[in-house]
């Protein structure tokens, strides 16, 4: 018996990613941010989400993809975590897709580096591959002690 799962999808440097819908709190447009000095580079800043302070992680930097170009502003995919909400900055938001477990594939060999670590699995869609992110690991960025710099 197969089970079906829903994923919230988005694109990043032409790649197609997804996170489980259950993990996503909301998707919001780009917000003004406060930069955090001494923070790891992938931390883009802090946003005020209705009184809650949310750390925004630049997913491109997190996945070691080339930096964003052009004028288009990234979007916030706010995911829940044990430690409160965290925002992932993505290029464009896609649809919610429902996928049968059977479509699950192993990570392709072409996936390397950090991305390979953070991608939980790959689903084969009709026209492309969906890379499913492990959100806990993705947001698990610890800052070095300030002295280590």
């Amino acid at each position: 018996m197969s089970t079906r799962k829903q994923f919230c999808t988005f694109s990043l440097n032409g790649l197609f990613f997804g996170v489980e819908v259950l993990r996503v709190q909301e998707v919001i447009r780009y917000q003004e941010m406060t930069a955090v000095p001494l923070a790891p580079a992938m931390v883009e800043g802090l946003i005020n989400l209705r009184g809650q302070i949310v750390t925004a992680i630049d997913l491109r930097r997190r996945l070691e993809l080339p930096p964003r170009t052009g004028d288009s502003l990234p979007l916030n995919v706010v995911v829940r975590s044990d430690d409160g909400a965290v925002s992932l900055l993505v290029d464009e938001i896609g649809d919610v897709v429902e996928i049968d477990d059977e479509a699950f594939e192993r990570k392709p060999e072409t996936l390397t580096g950090v991305a390979r670590e953070l991608v939980q699995g790959v689903y084969k869609l009709r026209d492309r591959l969906l890379l499913v992110l492990d959100t806990e690991r993705t947001i698990n960025v610890t800052s070095p002690g300030s002295h280590a710099q």
Binding site: T34, V36, P37, L38, A39, P40, V43, L46, N48, G51, Q52, I53, V54, T55, I57, D83, G84, V86, I139, N140, V141, T142, S143, P144, G145, S146, H147
Partner: peptide
């Protein structure tokens, strides 16, 4: 006073954030 997420806890210079 609001706490910082764990991504930023290691930075000794900050005690938290506020709006």
């Amino acid at each position: 006073v609001k706490p910082l997420g764990k991504q930023l806890k290691g930075i000794a210079c900050f005690a938290g954030a506020t709006i």
